[in-house]
Simulated assay, not measured.
Amino acid sequence: MNDVLTVGELTSHISLLLREDDLLADVTVTGEISNAVLAKSGHFYFSLKDADASISCVMWRSNVRTLFEIPREGESVIAHGRVDLYRPRGQLQLVVDAMRPAGGLGDLYKRFEEIKARLLAEGLFDAERKRPLPLFPRRIGVVTSATGAALRDILRVLAQRWPLADVLLAPSLVQGAQAPAALQATLRALYRRDDIDVIILARGGGSIEDLWAFNDEGVARLVAEAPVPVVSGVGHETDFTIVDFVADVRAPTPSAAAAAVSPDSDAIRQELMSLSARLTAAMLTRIERARMMVERDHSRLERLSPQYRLDQRRLMVDELDRRLALAMENMLDQRRVALDGLYQRLLALNPNAVVARGYAIVRDEAGHIVQSVQQVTPDQPLDVQVSDGHFPVVVLG
């Protein structure tokens, strides 16, 4: 018995088999469009059917943009792509990468491709010739119908995003047999002015016939000759015209064209506030550094000035005078202490001081102090000194 597969494993295996099949990986199918839905994401979902069967199809947005126009319900087409499995539903689908009408190329489509190929060969679509849009346009030229919804959308977006710009409306026919000549005349009139910074060339959506004026070769060549950048905003996101390839910038809608040429004033205001705060902080920092440098230089100049040196010498003299006076005072104190010690010693050696303590000094007739009995004889007169005077004595024996 074979291994039991999960549903996911089974669908993965089927998907792998489909991708490895050379026929199914590169298949061209013809059928009739049904259940067509152009999603907001830009992807195109539909079915291809004939009398015998039907298959679900999807065309991703990147490939939808290459279509000349979106096929309508019931239209027969020839689609190229690969067969794959939509695993969440276990459903086969055709992933379409190219599609064209089944009845062959129509006259308008042929003319479109011829003009496109010719201008492409001349280099009018080259990225190198595309010019950058001005960052802050002062005057914006708008070429469109004066009564169409495209103009209202453009003016609304410009008023919201960049009300500082002047808008110069150059009204023109944008549909019909006379529209190409009208567009060329309007563009030439704008080109003669020297106060236009950028031009918007726009109209609302419509069929290929409605938009054909913007596929006119004369209009496309004149757009390529514009002295200022041109932004095309013709039709809807899935509509492409020759003018879109020639213009400096292609916008999917008129509103998007207005947004492309106008900076966001709110964002600029926030940026200016941020830059102002940063500039203020930087200036305050520079001012503080300059103040510190000035103070440092001022301090250096003060130290180098004659007055500063004189003041320093005066301070030094005052300090030496103070130290000298202190040294003299210390020396005098030391001398006083020494003299006081000598004085006390002299007092201790003074005979009068001894007498004052109750002793007596005996002298002979010559005034010599008698220090021993050997120095006297009987009947010798002596003089006795006491604390309060003298009196005579005689040695008795």
Rank of each mutant, 00 (worst) to 15 (best):
G8Y: 02
I115M: 01
L108H: 03
L158A: 04
V58M: 07
M328Y: 04
A353C: 03
E365W: 02
M273N: 14
V370Q: 11
D297T: 12
P132Q: 09
A260M: 13
F125A: 12
H236V: 10
Q380K: 14
R322Q: 12
A338L: 08
D21G: 10
I196D: 02
L16M: 08
I200A: 03
N215M: 03
D244T: 06
R65S: 08
S305L: 09
E329T: 14
V376M: 09
G235I: 04
P306A: 11
D210M: 03
L24W: 00
Q184N: 08
L310A: 14
G367Q: 14
D321S: 12
M273D: 15
S34P: 11
E302T: 15
T280A: 11
L190G: 06
E128L: 11
R336V: 06
P229S: 13
L396G: 08
R89M: 01
A181V: 03
A224V: 05
V37Y: 09
L190Q: 06
V384D: 02
V261I: 11
A220P: 13
F68M: 03
N350I: 02
A366M: 10
D50H: 05
V261Q: 11
P263M: 07
D194Y: 01
L18R: 12
M273K: 14
I196G: 07
E225I: 03
T377L: 11
L332T: 10
R161W: 04
P306G: 08
W212M: 01
E319I: 04
P378T: 11
D97T: 09
E319F: 02
G206Y: 07
E209D: 11
E73W: 01
L155N: 13
H43F: 00
V384L: 05
Q160C: 09
I115N: 08
T30D: 15
R82Y: 01
N330S: 12
V83Q: 04
F46H: 08
L279Q: 14
I14L: 11
L168D: 00
R291M: 10
D22S: 13
S47V: 00
G103N: 13
P132W: 00
G141I: 06
S387F: 00
N330W: 02
R322W: 05
R65P: 00
L169I: 08
V294G: 11
A258Q: 11
H368P: 07
M328V: 06
E329C: 03
L38E: 08
F44L: 14
A36F: 00
M331D: 10
P88Q: 07
D297Y: 06
G8A: 12
A327W: 01
V231C: 09
V64N: 10
R87K: 03
P306T: 12
I361Q: 07
Q93K: 13
L315E: 08
V37I: 13
T11A: 04
F46Q: 11
L108W: 03
A182I: 02
Q371L: 12
R286M: 10
S255E: 05
I196R: 15
L279V: 14
A179V: 02
L211T: 01
R250W: 01
D26E: 13
Y109G: 04
G235C: 05
A25Y: 00
D297M: 09
P378N: 07
A189E: 15
E73F: 00
R345C: 03
H298K: 15
